[in-house]
């Protein structure tokens, strides 16, 4: 495997008394696309949110490019990071959401420009140029002035991708980004992600699209009940599942 960009060790997270992540280990090499699969409720979203510091984890470690995401200091000195440090860490990790979460009061271009101006410190002209570049990359050059409410779900999600990627993150997190889309709109969004993967963007992808997982994933991780059950090359793992739990999961997917 290439040099690890992300290394997750013994990650644990509870909501109240419910243990949602129970000691997960995952490595993601530079340029890899690790696909995370698993039944609803298995902890995939929580894992991504911990990686982007949207949730604080209780125990274990997440390092992105050598930096511990949620905490500073080691051992007894370990303390949750403050707001400013977290913001700086999040700026280098892109995330695309199941429900798009575009800013409805801003048009497509402004959605992409916001982080470029306020976080990256680009001038308005520079931000505009880079936003338009990325909107063109996702096939929305002619939609820059449209507000999210004027765009289809597929278009909104492509703006969501442009917004994340324009920040030039080290790592991109995709959480079921096609689950809320009508079937005929799924293809256009996945095509954009395929291209990003081919261009070497490092990503962790949560998806139920198994064909996409097979084509794009350099590795597949199957989670169940907050633990990693199986991990392997997509063509191997998806065709010859070893664990009963993965077999059951895959057969349920085929049935629907």
């Amino acid at each position: 495997m290439a040099e690890a960009l992300v290394s997750i060790r013994n990650l644990k997270k509870s909501f109240g008394r419910t243990r949602v992540l129970d000691g997960v280990d995952i490595d993601v090499g530079k340029g890899e696309a690790v696909v995370l699969i698993g039944a609803s409720g298995s902890g995939k979203t929580t894992l991504l949110r911990c990686v982007n510091a949207l949730e604080r984890y209780d125990d274990g470690s997440i390092r992105v490019d050598g930096v511990e995401v949620g905490f500073r200091g080691e051992g007894a000195e370990r303390r949750p990071r403050g707001e400013r440090e977290l913001s700086a860490i999040r700026a280098d990790i892109g995330m695309v959401f199941q429900l798009f979460n575009l800013f409805p009061h801003l048009n497509a271009r402004e959605n992409v420009m916001l982080g470029l101006q306020k976080v990256r410190g680009l001038t308005k002209a520079e931000a505009r140029e880079r936003a338009d570049h990325w909107l063109a990359q996702v096939g929305l050059a002619d939609r820059a002035e449209n507000y999210p409410s004027e765009l289809s779900g597929g278009q909104q999600q492509r703006v969501g991708i442009a917004r994340a990627v324009a920040m030039e993150p080290k790592l991109l997190l995709l959480d079921e980004i096609t689950s809320a889309l009508d079937p005929e709109l799924v293809g256009e969004v996945l095509a954009v992600v395929r291209r990003l993967a081919a261009d070497g963007m490092t990503m962790i992808v949560v998806t139920h699209e198994m064909i996409f997982a097979r084509d794009v994933g350099t590795r597949v991780v199957f989670m169940d009940g907050g633990v990693k059950v199986e991990e392997g090359a997509p063509r191997d793992l998806l065709v010859n599942p070893r664990s009963e739990r993965l077999k059951a999961f895959l057969s349920r997917l085929e049935m629907h």
């Binding site: 977290l86 990790i93 979460n101 994340a164």
Partner: peptide
């Protein structure tokens, strides 16, 4: 305002006041 707006704003690195 839905939580997703705060999540998305955090994800691009905006600070609390931003």
């Amino acid at each position: 305002i839905p939580q997703g707006q705060t999540d998305a704003a955090k994800a691009i690195g905006l600070t609390f006041f931003q």
